[in-house]
Computed example of a mutant assay.
Amino acid sequence: MGTPLLFKASTADRRFCADQELKNLQDEPVEGFRITLVDESDMYSWEVAIFGPPDTHYQGGYFKAQIRFPVDYPYSPPSVRFLTSMWHPNIYESGEVCISILHPPINDSQSGELPSERWNPTQNVRTILLSVISLLNEPNTDSPANVDASLMYRKWKDSKGADNEYAEIIRSDI
């Protein structure tokens, strides 16, 4: 049995994918998001304006994030990083978003994630944006990137909203 084939998108393929995705998102935007290029000469770095989803602690907020595409996109996931301060169980202090869909498509039995939950080339920026909205609605406290925010969110949820510390920290960032 030979060496497994490694797929690597050519620069033209990668640019075509990014161009197509940007065009699709501009033609049919995802509610609550606006996407622009950081620099017109760099198709692989996008700025995302995220409007806090209704009926969440983030409602009324305006958050900036950046999506960066790797050299082998769409075979590897882009990265998503908030540029504005975000207090959330699944967002690192650096702003990096930690969700399964953004994890490389490897079989990692230690992660607790199924391979089907990880990135695959059929995913796209639209599915990432929908995952971010889902995350803002309902954090995953089983796999926190920010342990303090996760503990505080659990305390808030267990108190059925009586403990306002979690909500107050979020509101102070908005």
Rank of each mutant, 00 (worst) to 15 (best):
L37S: 11
Y58K: 05
F7P: 01
Y44A: 09
F63M: 10
V71Q: 13
A9L: 04
H57F: 15
V97A: 14
E93A: 12
D163Y: 04
I35W: 06
L135R: 04
I50Y: 07
R34M: 10
E113C: 07
N140F: 10
I91S: 02
E28K: 13
T11K: 13
T127G: 00
V38F: 00
I35K: 07
R154F: 00
E31T: 13
T3W: 03
D158H: 09
S45K: 11
Q20A: 12
L130W: 00
L130V: 10
S100E: 05
A18S: 11
T122H: 07
E47S: 11
I101P: 01
Y166R: 02
P53Q: 09
D148I: 10
N124T: 00
D72V: 11
E31W: 00
S111F: 05
S76K: 12
K23E: 15
Y92W: 11
Y153I: 01
I106H: 05
S150F: 03
R126Y: 04
S94E: 06
D158E: 15
R81H: 02
Q123H: 15
L37W: 02
Y58I: 04
C17F: 10
P105K: 07
D13N: 12
L25N: 09
V125W: 03
E40L: 11
Q110D: 14
S100G: 15
P70S: 07
R126F: 04
T141E: 07
R14H: 08
S143D: 12
N90P: 09
N164C: 10
A162S: 09
P104K: 14
G61Q: 09
D39G: 02
S41R: 14
R171A: 14
A18I: 15
A18V: 15
P4Y: 04
E168W: 03
L6S: 12
N124I: 00
M86C: 07
I133S: 11
V80A: 14
S143N: 15
